[in-house]
């Protein structure tokens, strides 16, 4: 059980990470500034995935569906109905909530491999739906959200999400909110029950916990976080396309989380950042960059079985959440 000293250390560490991210806004060169903003939004996606995969032990292969529910939930009404940025963001979250509740109710009747397959199938249905309604979504080609629609009026001021600094800081804000939310969840009573379900569901049931309800809550929380990432992606980067609903975007968060460390709060950021740059750098030299990613994953399995932060926690810093 964590004492008060640990609690302080945990919050200090997470606060320091946020502070560094904010500071980077002022020092990063333009290119990396843009990349990091994107990585932060994708890291939110990974954190949502990690909540379900890392803490509850439910391996989903359908999280692209939740991300793109947010993407389309925000992008479509903004593009077609002329919604403002704030209602569009809420629309994205609402879409994520609805989809994850529906999927959770159905998919949680299964477990293990069946859960993987069911979530993947639902995600494929979602992906094909975005293609089918190409008239509104423009399918793979996607929609580009015009600059003038991506502004928030605050009294006399306007917050322009296309401005690099604003965009970066909004990404940091979303990341920080999600980070502290997941931190609070995993340290809460509900979070401890989720870990117990991961470790031994049958035993948890026999301690009087409704494991289905707890898992459903986790699926919805995870879905909403991923949808928030999707909605933010649409609004900050102005692009809404079917690629984000494809199976690739269901597998990526799994890789990011495995790389950074499942069931660690900061692992998803580390994994996303690392992998994004590996792909970014190697694809500059060779078109076979997936080969490098593959080799990296093999090395990871050999030496960092629990991901980078998972291994660090196991060997050195036991207090890491």
């Amino acid at each position: 059980m964590s004492g008060d000293g640990t609690t302080t250390k945990v919050y200090a560490l997470h606060g320091a990470v946020i502070a560094v991210l904010v500071a980077l806004n002022f020092v990063l060169p333009e290119y990396h500034h843009g990349v990091l903003a994107r990585v932060l939004v994708l890291a939110v996606f990974a954190m949502g995935y990690n909540l379900l995969f890392g803490y509850v032990g439910l391996l989903s292969l359908g999280h692209a569906m939740f991300f793109s529910a947010g993407l389309y939930g925000a992008g479509l009404p903004l593009y077609h109905l002329g919604w403002g940025v704030v209602p569009a963001f809420a629309g994205g979250i609402g879409a994520g909530f609805t989809v994850s509740l529906f999927i959770g109710l159905l998919a949680l009747r299964t477990s293990g491999v069946a859960f993987m397959i069911v979530t993947m199938m639902f995600a494929q249905v979602f992906y094909l739906t975005t293609l089918y309604f190409g008239e509104w979504t423009r399918g793979d080609e996607g929609l580009v959200l015009q600059q003038h629609t991506r502004r928030i009026a605050l009294g006399s001021e306007t917050l322009d999400l296309t401005n690099p600094a604003t965009r970066y800081l909004m990404a940091v804000a979303l990341f920080a909110a999600t980070l502290f939310a997941t931190l609070a969840i995993v340290r809460s009573r509900h979070g401890r029950v989720l870990v117990a379900i991961r470790e031994n569901e049958e035993r948890t049931k026999m301690l009087g916990y409704d494991t289905f309800a707890n898992k459903l809550a986790a699926v919805v929380t995870s879905g909403v976080i991923c949808a928030a990432a999707g909605a933010a992606y649409a609004l900050l980067f102005g692009y809404v396309g079917s690629t984000f609903a494809s199976v690739q975007y269901s597998i990526l968060p799994l890789l990011w989380v495995l790389l950074g460390g499942a069931a660690t709060t900061l692992g998803p950021l580390l994994g996303t950042l690392f992998m994004y740059y590996v792909v970014d750098i190697t694809s500059g030299y060779t078109s076979a960059y997936m080969l490098v990613v593959g080799a990296m994953l093999i090395l990871l399995v050999l030496w960092f079985r629990k991901g980078v932060l998972g291994t660090v926690r196991e060997r050195w810093l036991r207090w890491l959440p």
Partner: peptide
């Protein structure tokens, strides 16, 4: 369902030890 029976006061300890091995005894 089982979890509601537990709440009514029926507790079951497993034949095959099934403590949460990765958590501390206290947890």
């Amino acid at each position: 369902p089982a979890h509601l029976r537990v709440r009514r006061g029926i507790a079951y300890t497993f034949q095959i030890t099934s403590v949460f091995a990765n958590l501390s005894a206290y947890e």
